[in-house]
Design a binder for these strands. Structure first.
Length: 173
DNA sequence: CAGAAGATCGGG
DNA sequence: CCGATCTTCTGC
């Protein structure tokens, strides 16, 4: 399978890519050489500094700065004292946005994915086009994609918490 | 500088 | 339903 180049992540916004990434293949290669390949089944879009659920709405900080870069990089962050959540930065430089990977084949839940893939802060800013340990490959998956409100963002206020920006493949359930 | 909450998960 | 466990942000 072919690795997807960063032009793909830079050409579209997170709302489109969150849907389009469903069925594409997330690849992780460990130091041992072992490779995990799983199709993406669930995502969420976080779109711009106006989106109060998006970390970038707090402005450009050490934690969020990678979202202000051009698409194709990894945004990981540590939460609840134990989980590394995996996001893909999308869009153009200075248009902060990202797609949260919430579910892949045989591994549902963003916290569990970080654990399965053994992510840590060293993945912050990792380039998906050139990395030897994490990238996305082109693939497809038959079936429809459903959308729902995003999970765990009730703090973002009525407008943003209700945006149907979570996408799940029908196979998921 | 202290306190609280967080894009979560698993156990009781 | 709550504890784990620590980074980040906010308010005093």
């Amino acid at each position: 399978m072919d690795r997807i180049p960063n032009s793909y992540f830079q050409t579209y916004d997170s709302l489109f890519l969150a849907q389009d990434l469903i069925g594409k293949t997330l690849v992780r290669q460990f130091d041992t050489g072992e490779i995990i390949r799983r199709k993406i089944l669930e995502t969420e879009a976080y779109l711009g500094k106006e989106d109060l659920a998006c970390h970038a709405s707090k402005g450009k900080t050490p934690r969020t700065s990678v979202m202000f870069e051009e698409g194709g990089k990894v945004y990981v962050y540590f939460i609840y004292g134990m989980y590394w959540l995996l996001n893909i930065v999308t869009g153009e430089k200075d248009h902060p946005q990202a797609v949260l990977i919430r579910g892949i084949e045989e591994c549902l839940g963003p916290g569990r994915i970080g654990k399965l893939l053994q992510l840590d802060k060293s993945f912050y800013g990792e380039n998906l086009e050139t990395s030897s340990r994490i990238w996305i490959e082109d693939s497809s998956l038959k079936g429809s994609v459903l959308s729902t409100p995003r999970i765990g963002v009730d703090y973002a206020g009525e407008i943003w918490k209700n945006k149907p920006w979570r996408f799940v493949h029908e196979n998921l359930t």
